[in-house]
Amino acid sequence: MAAIQKRGKKYRVRVIRRGFPTQSKTFITHAEALRWSRDIEIQMDRGEFKSHEAERSRMVDKSIPFQQAAHHYQKTHSIHKKIVRCETSRLNILIKRWGDLEVGKVDKQSVITLRDDLLKMGRSGETINHYFNTISKLFQMLKDEWDIDIANPIKGIKRMPPSQGRTKRVNVELECLLLSGCDQLSLPLLRSIIQFAIYTGMRRGELMRLTWADIDLPNRKAYLHQTKNGEPRQVPLTRQAIAVLEALSKDEERVFPMGMDALRSQFGHLKEYAKGRWNGIGVNPFYDLRFHDLRHEALSRLSDAGLNVIELSHISGHRTLGMLKRYTHPSHEAIFLKLERE
Rank of each mutant, 00 (worst) to 15 (best):
A2K: 09
I4H: 04
K10G: 03
K10V: 10
R12K: 15
V15H: 05
V15D: 05
R18C: 07
F20G: 13
T22D: 15
T22I: 09
Q23T: 05
F27H: 06
L34W: 07
L34N: 13
R35S: 05
S37M: 01
R38K: 13
D39T: 14
E41Q: 15
I42A: 15
S51T: 07
E53I: 06
R56K: 14
R56G: 00
S57Q: 15
R58D: 13
R58N: 14
M59W: 08
D61N: 08
K62V: 10
I64N: 08
I64M: 11
P65V: 03
Q67G: 14
Q68F: 11
Y73I: 07
Y73M: 04
K75F: 09
S78M: 12
K81D: 14
I83H: 08
E87N: 09
T88L: 13
S89P: 01
R90N: 12
N92F: 14
G99E: 09
E102G: 06
Q109D: 15
S110M: 02
V111I: 12
D116W: 06
D116A: 12
I128S: 12
H130N: 14
Y131I: 11
Y131D: 00
F132Y: 11
T134V: 15
I135N: 01
M141T: 04
M141C: 01
D149C: 03
A151F: 02
I154V: 04
G156R: 04
I157D: 09
P162V: 03
P162A: 13
S163M: 03
Q164A: 13
V170K: 04
N171H: 06
N171G: 11
E173L: 00
L177C: 00
L179F: 05
Q184F: 04
L187S: 08
L189A: 04
I194L: 14
I198L: 11
R203P: 07
R204A: 13
R204C: 14
E206V: 08
M208S: 11
M208D: 12
R209P: 09
I215R: 10
D216Y: 10
L217Y: 03
N219I: 04
K221N: 04
L224Y: 12
N229A: 13
G230S: 04
Q234D: 08
V235K: 09
A241E: 04
A241K: 12
V244F: 09
L248R: 02
K250S: 08
E252S: 10
E253F: 08
M260G: 05
A262V: 08
A262W: 11
L270V: 00
Y273S: 03
K275F: 01
G276A: 07
N279L: 03
I281N: 13
V283R: 02
P285Q: 01
D293K: 03
D293F: 09
L294V: 01
L294Q: 01
H296S: 05
E297N: 06
E297G: 12
A298H: 10
A298E: 00
L299W: 03
A305N: 07
L307C: 06
L307R: 08
I310Y: 13
S313N: 05
M323V: 02
E342I: 00
E342F: 05
